[in-house]
Simulated scan of single mutants.
Amino acid sequence: MALRAGVAGGVLSTIAVAGSANAATAAEPVTETIEMPTLTATLTSKAALSAEATQQAADAYQYRAEQQSAAEKAVKDAKKAHKAAEKKAEAAAKKKAEERAAAERAARSAERTDLSGVQTAAATSSSTGSSASAPSQDVPAPASGSVASVISFLQAQVGDAYVMGGTGPNSWDCSGLVQAAFKQVGVDLPRTSQEQSTAGTQVGTSNLQVGDILYWGGQGSAYHTGVYIGDGKYLDAANPSKGVVIQDLSGYPADGAVRVL
């Protein structure tokens, strides 16, 4: 029995060892032919995806950089064009202002000459006692020529626009024009019509002289002013539709007048 048991044990051990060897031999090809190729394919796929994503990111960055560069260039070009346009507009405005100033100087020179002739004629007529050749009104001729300068300035503004609150040089309201005219000869008038109607000496509208300030409304509450220029006419910044004009006093009689020269 012992012998049989030993033989049987030996046989079983041999079978077990052979079975283990066969199992190990059978498992080895599976590890070599299935697991390794699958791992290699996965790594290759991940590497390809990573490379593609990197290229896409690089392309996107380059596109944004190109867009930014183009935008910056467009901004610079626009700034250059804007500066050029500003310089051109400034040059045109300067040229226009110079031309206007030259025209005004020429007009004032001519007006001073005409007014001087009228004053000379009036003085000559008065000294000879002849009234036939005298103008319809005496034109006062102060030694300083203040009245002539005021009237010359006012006539040079005829045709300018009326703008409420305007004080020149190309647009005026009534009191702004009167104030600017007398400032030419060193007379500082108040700014508003109400205040100008109380400046200087009150004179009757039937005893007007060239250079008197006319006002409409009450003394101290006037709503409009102008300047008497002789021959029954006055000059004023009338309203937005007329602008600066010469008008007949008979068509719009003043309520009062003050004399500052």
Rank of each mutant, 00 (worst) to 15 (best):
V75P: 04
A24F: 06
A181F: 12
T124E: 10
G218R: 02
H82Y: 15
E66N: 02
I213Q: 00
L249T: 05
T120Q: 06
R259N: 00
T124N: 08
G176S: 09
T54L: 05
A18G: 15
N22Q: 09
A107M: 10
Q209T: 05
R100L: 04
V227S: 09
A180R: 14
Q202N: 11
A91H: 11
D248T: 10
T205V: 05
G159Y: 01
Q55W: 01
V245E: 06
Q55Y: 00
V187S: 02
A53S: 02
L115V: 00
A143D: 12
A8R: 12
P240N: 09
K95T: 08
V185T: 14
G251E: 10
Y228C: 01
R112E: 13
L12Y: 05
G230I: 00
D138I: 14
Q247T: 12
G217T: 08
T31S: 08
V7A: 11
L43F: 08
A21V: 07
A70R: 13
A222Q: 04
A161P: 03
V210Y: 01
Y228A: 01
V17G: 06
A84K: 14
I34E: 10
T54Y: 01
T167W: 03
G129L: 07
S13E: 04
E72P: 00
A26D: 08
S69P: 00
N170Q: 05
L189V: 03
I246E: 07
Y252G: 05
A106H: 12
A26N: 04
D173T: 01
L49G: 15
E86G: 12
K46E: 02
T167F: 10
L208C: 06
A122S: 11
K87D: 13
G218T: 07
V17C: 11
G251S: 09
G9C: 07
E35V: 13
I213D: 01
V7E: 13
T205F: 13
P135M: 08
V158P: 03
A70H: 04
Q155E: 14
L189D: 06
A5Y: 13
G251M: 14
S127H: 09
S20M: 05
A122Y: 14
V30I: 14
E52A: 12
R112H: 13
R100H: 08
V178W: 04
E32C: 00
S125E: 09
G256T: 02
D231E: 15
Y63G: 01
S171E: 06
G165P: 11
G159Q: 09
D114A: 14
K46T: 11
G243E: 13
Y162D: 13
K46Y: 02
W172C: 03
R64T: 00
D236I: 03
A141Y: 11
L12V: 15
Q119W: 10
L235Q: 03
A91G: 08
A156S: 15
G218V: 09
A47E: 10
A23Y: 13
V178F: 09
V203L: 02
D236A: 14
D255T: 15
S241N: 13
L189S: 06
H224Y: 06
V244T: 05
D212T: 00
Q62I: 02
V203D: 06
V245M: 07
T205L: 04
D59K: 03
A41E: 13
A122D: 10
A27D: 04
F182P: 05
T192P: 07
Y252L: 12
A60Y: 01
S136A: 13
G19E: 05
Q194V: 09
K183R: 15
A21H: 07
A102L: 12
A48Q: 10
G186L: 06
D138K: 15
A26G: 09
A238M: 11
E86N: 15
E104K: 14
